[in-house]
Amino acid sequence: MPQVGVTAQERKGNLRMKFDGDIEAKMREGVISYGAALILRFFAKNERPLLYDIFEKLKPSTNKMREISEYIFEISKRDGIRPADIFRMEEVRKMLASEESRKTKISRLRAFLRGIRFPLLSKKEKEINEMIKNLKLPAGARLKLPENFEGDKITLEILFTGEKPFRKSLEEISEKIDGINEIKKFLQNLSH
C-alpha cells in the first residue's frame, strides 16, 4: 500500500526529519513511530491527539501505524472530512469498543480503512476471493494472483508429500479448469 518512502539510513542517521514539538515528544515516549510521524506532520495540530490516543491504546507495529495514519489522512483530505469524523463512524466506534483483542482490532480497523480508501480495489479483491473460495481447491493447493491485479498470470502452488497425493491433487484441480478459466477471464476483463 502507498507509503511515504524513507530509507533505513534516513531513519537511523542524521538525515532524520525534524517535526513539531508534539510529534517529537510522542516519538520520544515511544507512542508513535518515525514512519507515522512522517504522515502525522500533515495533520492539523489539533487533530493529532486523537491519533496519539488510538495508537497508545492499540499499540500497532511501526508499519501498521504508518499505514493507518496514511489511510486516515488521505480519506479525510479526499472526502473533505476531519479525522475525528472517521472515528465517529458506527463501524469504527463498535470496533474500538468491542471486547476483541488488540491485534484483532488493529487488523479490522486497517481492513475497514483500506476499504474506504481503495473502494474499487477492495471490491475487485472481494469478488475474486469469492471466486477462489467457490473453486474449493484440494488441500495444499492455492492460486496466487498478480499483485494489485497488475497482469493476468496466475500461479498455482501445490504442496504434496509424494507421487500419489500429487497425482490426486492434479486430478482434482483438472476438474476445476472451468472455474480457473472464469478467474482468468475476470483478470483480463478491465471494465469496472
Binding site: P2, F118, P119, N148, F149, E150, L190
Partner: peptide
C-alpha cells in the same frame, strides 16, 4: 487521493481498471 497501487517498477499508478 485516487486509487493508486504500487507497480513492478516501484512507482504508484492508478489501478489498471481505472487506467484502461
Amino acid at each position: 487521493f485516487g486509487e493508486f497501487i504500487r507497480g513492478d517498477d516501484g512507482k504508484f499508478r492508478y489501478l489498471k481498471y481505472i487506467r484502461a
